[in-house]
Amino acid sequence: MTATTSAPSARKRGERSPLASVALHATLIAASVIAVFPVLWVLLTSLKPAKDAISTDFVKDPTLENYRYLVESTSFFTWFGNSVLVAGVTTVLGVFIAATTGYAVSRFKFPGMRPLMWTLLVTQMFPMAILIVPLYNLMGQLGLLNQPLGLIITYLTIAVPFCAWMMKGFFDTIPVEIDESGRVDGLNPFGTFWRLILPLARPGLAVTAFYSFITAWGEVAYASAFMVGDDNLTLAGGLQTFVTQYTANWGPMTAASVLIAIPAAIFFVFAQRHLVAGMTAGATKG
């Protein structure tokens, strides 16, 4: 009896037998390799001469030739700028439009709230397939096809419901007592929201903005259909011109991928903790 009870208590919780430890590390190493390898391979390929892009050597005549080609002979920076413009404006507008709604549905019970929540949920699951044709025709009539503004408006169909939904989750985490203290101080609901709640919700706003930014940043379908001509493409469209049915310029393609991925990855690494906290706040309360 003593033997069986003392065995677990000899080790503290969270400690493992050496065998379990090896298994844990082995599994995690395998998973990490799978997670990292494709990205690493792209990085390595971008440093090979373009004609050796399909070589299987890990390193072969390292050169920055692909990057130079990308900078000098393609519109990479134009695409990059278009993507930043479109995703940035979409994010700012999305957060701005949706903030008060997130607050209202988090705090008040009002007629129309349930259908609104329902609409927000359903619009988030809207397949682009239903909106793409009407939006395409609409943009065509307004002369906004092939314009960043047209793409921004289109992306707001994704960003607004998403931001409202997510921010509701964040506002839910802020104690109601704060609203009450505002009311006691004679603030109306708008004042309470603007002066008291919004400053507290700043991390939440940042996380919402971030997700909304990367969604717009990585969008492919609308960008492929609406934007044409080298000067108007976003990155998603621009990269497609490297690898088409008849061409496969893997060299510049991989170099462009690296240049796009690095800022995003660095940001992720630093912001990770916030994102995790923010996501779960949004998720558990959503």
């Binding site: 430890s21 844990l24 590390h25 995690l28 998973a31 990490s32 997670a35 990292v36 494709p38 990205v39 391979w41 792209v42 390929t45 990367i214 940043w217 990585g218 492919v220 990155l235 998603a236 990269l239 690898v243 893997w250 393609m253 991989t254 991928s257 796009i260 991925a261 995003a264 990855a265 940001f267 992720f268 690494v269 990770q272």
Partner: peptide
Amino acid sequence: FRGRAFYRMALILPWAVPGFVSVFAWRFL
């Protein structure tokens, strides 16, 4: 355990890279 932060960073990488970039990378592989 030791190395947790490292694993976490490695495992999060596929999310950090824009989706269309990764998809092209896979097509290449």
